[in-house]
Design a protein around this nucleic acid. Sequence first.
DNA 1: TATGAATGAGATTTCATTCAT
DNA 2: TATGAATGAAATCTCATTCAT
Lengths: 203, 203, 203, 203
Amino acid sequence: MVQVLNVGSVRQSSARVRERNEARRLDILRAAARVFRRRGIAAAGMREIAEEAGLSPGNLYHYFSGKDEILLFCQENTLQRMLAAVQSAQGTAADRLRSVLHAHVHCMLDELEGATAHLDVESLPAKLRAPMIVKRDAYERGVRAIVAAGVKSREFARCDAALVTRAMLGAVNWTARWYRPDGALGADEIADALSEYLVKGLA
Amino acid sequence: MVQVLNVGSVRQSSARVRERNEARRLDILRAAARVFRRRGIAAAGMREIAEEAGLSPGNLYHYFSGKDEILLFCQENTLQRMLAAVQSAQGTAADRLRSVLHAHVHCMLDELEGATAHLDVESLPAKLRAPMIVKRDAYERGVRAIVAAGVKSREFARCDAALVTRAMLGAVNWTARWYRPDGALGADEIADALSEYLVKGLA
Amino acid sequence: MVQVLNVGSVRQSSARVRERNEARRLDILRAAARVFRRRGIAAAGMREIAEEAGLSPGNLYHYFSGKDEILLFCQENTLQRMLAAVQSAQGTAADRLRSVLHAHVHCMLDELEGATAHLDVESLPAKLRAPMIVKRDAYERGVRAIVAAGVKSREFARCDAALVTRAMLGAVNWTARWYRPDGALGADEIADALSEYLVKGLA
Amino acid sequence: MVQVLNVGSVRQSSARVRERNEARRLDILRAAARVFRRRGIAAAGMREIAEEAGLSPGNLYHYFSGKDEILLFCQENTLQRMLAAVQSAQGTAADRLRSVLHAHVHCMLDELEGATAHLDVESLPAKLRAPMIVKRDAYERGVRAIVAAGVKSREFARCDAALVTRAMLGAVNWTARWYRPDGALGADEIADALSEYLVKGLA
DNA sequence: TATGAATGAGATTTCATTCAT
DNA sequence: TATGAATGAAATCTCATTCAT
């Protein structure tokens, strides 16, 4: 009976707790992204991530089972958004492509601060890698499909869709390496100019 | 055998020794590049490099003063070749650009087997980093100059030369991530198709 | 419910509370014993004990001051019962010995599920260890006294009572290592057969 | 050619090296056994093992891939000897049994200094555990076969061979817990008295 | 030259325990 | 009572580098 009476408050409290917990996980995620960006994946230490997130190294393990899980979370998060961009793109092939590349650049540079970590599937342990590769390939296939559709409809010139897709992705991914938040160009301008240039090469 | 034959001449022997030494350094360099590619820079261990090069860990230190020097050697080597390609390019801006990008792709994929390590200036210790950044920037400026020249001469459409340059470099650098020596496309085909596409976007 | 009913009487309530507290302590004890058995003493974590007992890690510390106290409680509990068995044994030396060994096996295999933890005095911190060693030795002396009495009365053959006692204790303690609750033999059968065999060797 | 000429000396040197290496491994083994005995398996730290063996913690990993491998080596070593004792035992069932138990006690108390670690298969990680269980069971079956043979030939009284075997093994294994090198009884006396007593219970 | 041994610093991770709520 | 968060110490293990031979 006592237990029954308490269930309500326990549940409620744990709902709030879960909420805060999830928020903390996202904080850590962002902190990790910053460190990944500064140091590269392998050189990013848990110590440094913890410090960046403002908690003790040991306490990280309250939120993530380890470095791998943090990395996985980063990558899933990012790819999820990119996949969404592919699915929601509309208009001509050129329109869709520009929109996808635009979103991609924003993904790289905005919240996650341009950590290539988010695409570095090779850094995951074998067990977590496979499902991420599936997602990554799905994304790449999605972009490629737009290119191929444009070629088929004569909107684009004939080309090797797979290779061109990779060239475009390379160009947008590389932004993470040279973008500086305090630089001359903002993320949006970069996204505009890049998607313009990359799509133009298909004409 | 070698030692026996050379016993009489210290000078000759030491010349051969130096020669062999230099050859060994290049072997190690290539071995290191393979490991960098497999594991990423930070995760590449001296032990693994040594094994890949066929010598003992301790012995590595007879040829290089440490990991940093290996990395520096890799990067200098690569950038040197890329700079040479910029300087020796001839013809219209489009020609020169295609030729530079072509060479760049070969640099990435041929001997050094596409280790992005060779561009990862951030991984160098502060002391060695500065001069490399100078060289890297010199290369980037060289490519940008070609783009700018093409724009000025109306050969290319008006564009942000710096940004487009970075897009192109991103596209070619990224090849290292997806190229597979046993894949459908060889380095040369990739180089052709990529430089074609990337230059076309400037028209 | 309980709380509601008791609101009026602080004394009654606190009596119940104490009662419930003690019951909880025993629950935790049993949970700890299961974990000790699964993992061994040193490898048993407070987290796991807490989970097994159905409460949060922090909450364990309301019932016990720490791991050591849990361990101490386990051992005292067990030895207390074994000592009681020695004191209440009656009949010939053989009868008494069988009865003690029988009880010992039940102690090992019944409620505490055969955790050798309960005999592992070495795992206690120095401060708690001494008094436990005294008790443990008292128990051993008690068993040895029965053996010695049997020898003296010619009921048993001449032998090194101390060594034989240890052999017997070893045999019964070891049951904890191989006993499986779902195995062919129940605790009672094991207790019968073992005490039979071990006493026979004294004839 | 050079390499060919050197092969001989390289091989020779590495033979000596391997020899020394193996000797070191055995030293470490014994050191580990002492620590296991002092602290129990789980509480035995690599630090302490290293210190006991007289080398730095990191250097342990030159000889063993980790704690698990040390433990495995200990157990294999011990069981190998025990199995040998079973196979070389001769005479009546009673003779063979005494000889096996005698050897077992020596195994426990002599060189390995009575670390029960050597029988604690549960402490191995799952992957290494299975093959050890096979060996351990082979040993137990070997002892049981002797008991069963004695029963069949009427040399021993009818009994549950499996259970009696375990009782005997418990008695001898337990010696590791109470034996003190500076105690009144030496390993040999203990071995004599124990095997005598344990076999007598089968008459 | 070349090797295996050795080391010390530091990485990730675990865990008993404490604390604020 | 009860909880999740937090911590500091320690554990295992890795690794670049040095050293004796």
